[in-house]
């Protein structure tokens, strides 16, 4: 039976800054993806992403998780996926940024072979990697020494647009 193995959230509050880090450990079942989407959207809202950015990042994470379930694990199963969602601050990110890492323990592949497909070829499927790379400012796949893969993605907050995210789904 599928279970959420662990959900943790801790917020460290200093005098003027708040750093959000969320770690989710889920079983590789599609039913849990909405939980992750909601968490991503909540952090995106909290760090000041506008609606368009927040929704795009949520979609990228959905694509990454779907790829893990489909390709790393060969379908829904009881294996674990660990998701870390962190707020980034510092000189490189004057408006802030969000880092999401997705760790699986399934079949590993050469990161250089993970590329989006040619969009001129209209056919079903194979769009997930293209969507991730289009949306995120950075995305890197790592083959882990013991087992599985880790994907780390960064999205920098864009303050240019005035509409702020407000409605998590």
């Amino acid at each position: 039976m599928a279970t959420i193995l662990e959900t943790k959230e801790w917020i460290m509050t200093a005098a003027t800054t708040r750093h959000t880090h969320i770690k989710l450990k889920i079983c590789a079942f599609l039913e849990y993806l909405s939980l992750v989407r909601h968490s991503v959207r909540t952090v995106a809202d909290n760090i000041g992403m506008n609606i368009e950015q927040a929704e795009a990042v949520t979609l990228a994470v959905q694509e990454a998780l779907t790829n893990v379930i489909k390709h790393s694990y060969g379908g829904p199963c009881n294996e674990k996926i660990i998701i870390r969602i962190s707020e980034l601050q510092g000189p490189k990110f004057p408006n802030g940024a969000m880092e999401i890492s997705i760790r699986d323990y399934g079949k590993a592949v050469d990161p250089e072979k993970i590329i989006g497909r040619n969009l001129d070829d209209i056919k079903p499927g194979g769009l997930g990697v293209h969507i991730i790379k289009s949306i995120m400012d950075q995305s890197n796949y790592f083959k882990m020494a013991d087992k599985g893969m880790e994907l780390t993605m960064i999205k920098i907050v864009n303050k240019d647009t005035s509409v702020k995210a407000s409605c998590p789904h």
């Binding site: 959905q62 694509e63 779907t66 079903p124 769009l127 997930g128 969507i131 789904h169």
Partner: peptide, 17 residues
């Protein structure tokens, strides 16, 4: 429809074809 991912889009492409 509140949300659709590439699995949904792939199905749309398949049914369009």
């Amino acid at each position: 429809v509140k949300f659709m991912d590439s699995s949904g889009l792939a199905t749309m492409v398949e049914t369009l074809q």
